[in-house]
Design a protein around this nucleic acid. Structure first.
Length: 909
RNA sequence: GCGGACGUGGCGGAACUGGUAGACGCAACGGACUUAAAAUCCGUUUGGCCUUGCGCUAGUGUGAGUUCGAAUCUCAUCGUCCGCACCA
């Protein structure tokens, strides 16, 4: 019999080949069973998978295999996020063509993934750099353009001087490029934008319905969208004081209630009024230049003092024509947000308070905290932003903040005033929510006689979210299908001419975009007039590629359209999406937008692409340094001893090594583990098992040699256990015995108990708990067959066979190769991969008698065993007759006896 | 500064809607097997106390509270991590 060691290296490729030959993981779109779409975030083909991929894909595979066993038609595809800068960097550094580099990497990584034994449908594999894929992306770009979801506009962009490309706001982290780490500069460029702000409100409110998303991710997206409700107020300016007789200043405020606490106005350095004033005031111009110089260095911004420059312009208080407010240009006002202008109420805004304390403008509290005497309430260094009652505010006095906001809005909305001639030219920030503000342009303006008039204020929604700039000055991306014609302007490439294919013959000897300097590629005839024209040389942000790949997987073969509507509507939404928390905002928000845009253009039929989202934690590892302080890779280090006496030496030389912090695996700290090494020495099952055990999947897990060895030992133990059980099972009758003796019943209870717990844990994605229950089950079964003497009764043999069949199917989702090997040993001809999940017999989990813990005054003191259906009185009587209870009561009657059915009894003495 | 999450043995962690805290794994210790080691198997392992009993007592960052009963709920406080950030 098979009592030898389980040889993973021999068995794993064999089973992988069998699965492949029988095509059991291929998914058919005409499968009538209920669907389940499980997807892990597809990888960038960097060349090698890392251990984080192993964790990510192991989780997805458990879900896929489990759901398959549960009778679902499971879609579990894989592809490659194949465009992006590393390919170009490789081209520059190693003179490899990005395409060659990318496809080599894909081949290598695919082999690695296949050696993991993942139950993927490789027939649906896609690479985003394949023209067969990006052709459809170009088509959707054109459809979006037609639908008004794409816009070309001049805008200030974040320019990465190292990568020589534009970055989205989301790609700027602490003022630095997210990939290069170089300080980002501001530049004016004409860019293509996806109008994600059209959906700002919907993207926000729909978050509430995503109840299978982590709360954390939803919160992050909420903050990112940054909705704020407020009032847009037209402040009159004293024309005598303005540079070009300007008469108004628009201000966005969320605190109109504090209008009577206003002490000054402040505008952004790049506000048009600032520019106008600076034109006549060299000192102000110098000040503005100075603030812009600080503009790029984020750290200075954060610690910078509030600085301002009095323009001499006076604004008029909306409720008091005699009340003049000085207008400052201030370094802390952002042109990007709201209108780039504020009124400052120092008593209730810390920034404004800091400002007035520098310039001696004073403050007047207008909100009095509850229980404070308004007569003595003063603000010095700390602004009060809490709740309270209005004071010092004329007609608002005594109101709550909410009532005061309402009152101010009502009064100013009623007041109609002529619009200045220049008003329609008011610059709008890119994030202004035009579609949600019915009155784009002059505020709800209308004609009164010959004059255009509008209310002084209007309620407005503001969002932090900006439109998504997708232009990149890069070669290795999806070309934007646009032609620029001198005569016709911007002309979309006709759909029939798609795809616009990237040229292969490009040079990477200089920075900048090789497409732009390609000798012939960009020169084309204008599709409209036939005259000479040039192609758009920008390519799309790679986040576009990953914003719809999940939809393409549902029918990756269709050549005539991005999606087959029947397939995409049947498969989407993804039931379980699994990936890293680092994509909590960018990728997920873009995908949510893109799905809505696809719906608007007829390419999909739903709004939300991901019904369930799970964000797994990172894999971390100890770091090691040698005497020179150089990082050392774990594979070269030998660890000896434990706890306090634990020390490390370099294997090659015996040189002592310093054991450092446990950190996220990174190339720079060399604390990485190569999955190939692990699979070579322990096998894929062990790697998968260890990545799922111990730590909860959403938390970071530490990779330790001991942990892997523990997993490895367990695979051997399981192998032995199943082999021994198989020998006993060989004696089992084929018919189910009518009666089970006590040992057999115990075995059945163990197996079915584990079945219930493991199923529950997988459903909840609590893989670590699931694994704990499998350990427990294996241990119990091991005890059970150890106790048995040589003569095995038929009922026991039958129970052992049943238990073995259950056990193997329970660990199959985590260790599918070992499970196949065990399944064969148990005498089954079929593959365990295609077996249904075991059927639970719930009555086995119901005991005839139950043992209830007995508490006395909340502390556990005894147990009582009663019939399962015993009544309250019977339980009470049984409890009161216990020695421990009698002792505690000391002859007195209990104050109270609480019986919680099936749970616990508590006696209050 | 704002928002969120978390805090349980030597370690990773478990504990259903408030109901036996410490499942399971790792490490450690003891034992078996062995000439020996490795591997494997069995056992012990929260602290304190003693009358060593299937005992008593304390115990889930800290302090209070609600409750018959709190790791779980409330308030305060300390700490760690994450996200956002002159957002008007």
């Amino acid at each position: 019999m098979t009592s030898d060691r389980y040889n993973a290296r021999e068995a794993e490729p064999r089973w992988q080949q069998t699965w492949d030959e029988r095509g059991i993981f291929a998914t058919r779109n005409d499968d009538p069973r209920p669907k389940y779409y499980v997807l892990e975030m597809f990888p960038y083909p960097s060349g090698r998978i890392h251990i984080g991929h192993v964790r990510n894909y192991a989780m997805g595979d458990v879900v896929a295999r489990y759901k398959r066993a549960r009778g679902f038609s499971v879609l579990h595809p894989m592809g490659w996020d194949a465009f992006g800068m590393p390919a170009e960097n490789a081209a520059i550094e190693r003179k490899v063509h990005p395409k060659a580099w990318t496809y080599q990497n894909i081949a290598a990584m695919k082999a690695q993934l296949q050696s993991m034994g993942l139950s993927l449908d490789w027939a649906r594999e896609i690479a985003t750099c394949d023209p067969a894929y990006y052709k459809h992306q170009q088509r959707m770009f054109l459809d979006f353009l037609k639908a008004g979801l794409v816009e070309r506009k001049q805008s200030k962009v974040n320019w990465d001087p190292v990568d020589q490309t534009v970055l989205a706001n989301e790609q700027v982290i602490d003022g630095r490029g997210w990939r290069s780490g170089a300080p980002v500069e501001q530049r004016e460029l004409t860019q293509w934008f996806f109008k994600i702000t059209n959906y700002a409100e919907d993207l926000l409110t729909a978050l509430d319905a995503l109840d299978r998303w982590p709360e954390k991710v939803r919160t992050m997206q909420k903050n990112w969208i940054g909705r704020s409700e407020g009032l847009l107020v037209r402040f009159a300016l004293d024309p005598a004081t303005t540079p070009a007789a300007e008469t108004e200043l628009d201000v966005f405020t969320t605190r109109p209630d504090t209008l009577f606490g206003a002490k000054f106005m402040a505008i952004a350095p790049d506000h048009p009024l600032s520019a106008a004033a600076a034109a006549k005031n060299p000192a102000l111009a110098a000040f503005i230049v100075e603030t812009k110089r600080h503009g790029t260095a984020q750290e200075i911004i954060e610690t910078a003092e509030k600085q301002g420059f009095d323009t001499g312009i006076k604004a008029v208080h909306p409720f008091d024509p005699a009340w003049a407010l000085p207008v400052y240009v201030a370094n802390f006002i952002l042109m990007d947000y709201g209108t780039g202008a504020i009124f400052g109420c120092p008593a209730h805004d810390q920034r404004d308070l800091d400002f007035v304390n520098t310039y001696g403008l004073g403050n007047t509290p207008v909100v009095c905290p509850p229980g404070t005497d308004p007569a003595t309430f003063v603000i010095t260094d700390t602004a009060y932003d809490g709740d309270g009652t209005m004071i010092n505010s004329r007609f608002l006095d005594g109101m709550s903040i909410e009532a005061a906001k309402e009152e101010v809005a009502r009064r100013l909305e009623r007041e109609i005033r002529p619009l200045p001639a220049s008003h329609s030219a008011r610059p709008r920030a890119s994030g202004d929510p035009e579609p949600h503000t019915p009155s784009k342009g002059p505020l709800g303006s209308r004609l009164r006689g010959n004059e255009r008039v509008a209310p002084v204020a209007q309620r407005q929604l503001n969002y932090r979210l900006r439109d998504w700039g997708v232009s990149r000055q890069r070669y290795w991306g999806c070309p934007i299908p646009i032609i620029h014609c001198e005569a016709c302007g911007v002309v979309p490439v006709p759909v029939a001419d798609l795809p616009v294919v990237l040229p292969d013959d490009v040079e990477f000897d200089r920075p900048g975009n090789p497409l732009a300097r390609h000798p012939t590629w960009k020169h084309v005839a204008c599709p409209q007039c036939g005259g000479p024209a040039t192609r758009e040389t920008d390519t799309m942000d790679t986040f576009v590629d990953s914003s719809w790949y999940f939809a393409r997987f549902t029918d990756p073969w269709i050549a005539t359209a991005p999606t087959d509507r029947r397939a995409v509507d049947a498969w989407l939404p993804v039931d379980q999406y699994i990936g890293g928390i680092e994509h909590a905002i960018l990728h997920l928000l873009y995908s949510r937008f893109f799905t809505r845009a696809m719906k608007a253009t007829g390419h999909a039929g739903l709004d939300e692409p991901f019904a369930g989202l799970f964000t797994q934690g990172m894999v971390v590892h100890e770091t090691y340094r040698d005497a020179q302080g150089e990082w050392v890779v774990p594979a070269e280090v030998k660890i000896e001893g434990a706890d306090e006496s634990r020390r490390a030496t370099l294997i090659a030389t015996g040189e002592p090594i310093e054991i450092g912090q446990i950190e996220k695996m990174s190339k720079s700290k060399k604390n990485t583990i190569d999955p190939d090494d692990i699979m070579q020495s322990y096998g894929a099952d062990v790697a998968r098992w260890f990545m799922l055990s111990d730590s909860p999947p959403e938390r970071d897990v530490e990779w330790t040699e001991r942990g892997v060895q523990g997993a490895w030992r367990f695979t051997q133990r399981l192998w032995r256990l199943v082999s021994e059980m198989a020998e006993i099972a060989a004696a089992a009758p084929s018919a189910r015995p009518a009666e089970f003796g006590a040992p057999a019943l115990q075995v059945r209870k163990t197996a079915h108990g584990a079945l219930a717990k493991v199923s529950d844990a997988i459903e909840k994605l609590h893989f670590n708990v699931c694994i704990a229950h499998i350990y427990e089950c294996a241990k119990s079964l091991n005890d059970a067959i150890g106790d048995v003497d040589k003569t095995v009764t038929a009922d026991f043999a039958w129970a052992i066979r049943e238990a073995a069949d259950i056990l193997v199917r329970l660990f199959n989702p985590m260790m599918p190769h070992l499970a196949e090997e065990c399944w064969a040993v148990l005498g089954h001809d079929a593959l365990v991969a295609t077996e249904p999940w075991p059927v639970l017999e719930p009555e086995l989990l119901i005991e005839a008698t139950i043992t209830l813990p007995v508490q006395i005054n909340g502390k556990k003191r005894a147990d009582v065993t009663v019939a399962r259906d015993a009544g309250k009185e019977a339980i009470e009587a049984a409890v009161l007759s216990l020695d421990a209870v009698k002792r505690a009561l000391d002859g007195k009657a209990p104050k109270k006896v609480i019986v919680v059915p099936q749970r616990i009894v508590n006696v209050v003495a």
